[in-house]
Computed example of a mutant assay.
Amino acid sequence: MTTQPRPRVLEGFAGAGGLSEGARMLNLGPTLGYEIHPNACATATAAGHARVRADIRTLAPAGLEGLEGWVSGPPCPTYSASGKRTGRSDLDIVIGGAQTLFAQTSADAHTATYRQVADERSALVLETLRFALGIEGLQWIVAEQVPAVERIWWEFAASLATAYWESCDVITLRADDFGLPTRRTRRFLVAAREYTPDFSGLPIRSWWWTGRNREPEVLLPQLWTPFPRVSMAAALGWPAGVRVNTRGARKTAGGNEFSADGPAPGLTYTARSWWRTDLGSVDGRLEPWQAGVLQGFPPDYPWQGSRTSQFQQAADAVPPLMAAAVLGAATGRPWQGAVWERLDQLHDAAQPAAA
């Protein structure tokens, strides 16, 4: 019987494997992910990522040993612009819940937050801080969410800085800045206990920082990117001039079509209804593997479950190239070469020779 090596990195809300793929690209591991949804677990397991199916709220961080990093990607529907945005009305409650966690009042006080919010999914983001504070000896943290959680990430960063973490950054990244054909935008919390991460070369669109005994600062963004701009059409091997229908005949203020000659909008599960207007709604419909490629997964990534579930998994995932870059910066590992290697595999975009 083969014994699995003890994980060095623990993932919460690990999903189908976006952050796991990023860790694999860096040879950062071994990792172990907790995930509640069976299809996402099945996909990640089929792709070779270790998963335990569990509700993270039922798990205790106390007693976890030998971990270097904690990675967390709590679900975002209540905060996302594509959802009902109930999380935005729950922001003050969630921030109060973070303060309760930091004060270490009681487990009952933490669970009470779930009863106070309009949608309990809004409070799941608190598990990021609960594990960050509860895992003894942790050296670094990477957590991601939609841009609307900015205030929550600030609160978490301030709490960690007060607990004597050396550096706590909240940064905004966009997928097309990493050579991906989608404008997916994510907000990351990156914290290091004993050092300051090197974010050189990371295309940062907004940047907030605090640290041990330091007042928060807004730092200048780093907008330059070395990576190519890749269109949806080029990524999927389509001819120029293709348009994609997103809403059938239903018209909205933003229209119901976009050109594939640029990056696609950020994916949600509704991409299952996208189709090429030149081929029609049957022959031209987007397939799950194509949604995965737009996010930076290999074409043969083993998505499991129904069509709707596969699109949901792909849309929920952090783009692996973005994940590799952030994990590399957080841990001091070279990451640019890994990103270029994946871009070359996906889009024949080889890294330029050094001058």
Rank of each mutant, 00 (worst) to 15 (best):
R8Y: 02
V9I: 14
G15H: 08
A16K: 03
G17S: 11
G17Q: 08
A23T: 07
N27I: 01
L32N: 03
G33V: 03
Y34A: 01
I36N: 04
H37P: 00
N39L: 00
A40E: 04
A40T: 05
A40P: 02
T43G: 01
A44S: 11
A46E: 12
A47R: 07
G48H: 12
H49Q: 13
H49D: 07
R51H: 00
A54M: 05
T58Y: 01
T58Q: 14
L59W: 10
A62F: 11
G63V: 12
L64H: 06
E68P: 00
E68C: 05
Y79F: 15
G83I: 09
R88Y: 03
V94F: 06
I95W: 04
G96D: 14
G96W: 12
Q99N: 14
L101W: 11
Q104V: 07
Q116W: 03
S122C: 05
A123I: 03
T128H: 01
L133V: 06
G134D: 06
E144Q: 11
E144P: 05
E150C: 04
R151N: 11
R151W: 02
I152F: 14
A157C: 09
A157T: 07
A161C: 11
Y164Q: 13
C168I: 04
V170K: 05
D176H: 15
L180A: 08
L180E: 02
R186G: 03
A191C: 13
R193M: 06
Y195W: 14
I204N: 06
R205W: 10
R214E: 15
P216K: 10
P221M: 13
Q222C: 05
P226V: 14
G248W: 08
T252H: 10
A253V: 00
G254Q: 13
F258G: 09
S259W: 09
D261K: 03
P265W: 06
A271N: 06
R276N: 05
R276T: 08
T277K: 15
V282Q: 15
L286N: 03
P288W: 06
P288H: 09
A291N: 04
V293S: 02
F297D: 07
D300C: 01
Y301W: 15
Q310E: 09
Q312E: 06
G328M: 10
A329M: 12
R333P: 02
R333G: 02
Q336T: 12
Q336P: 00
V339M: 07
V339C: 14
E341F: 09
R342W: 07
Q345I: 08
H347G: 01
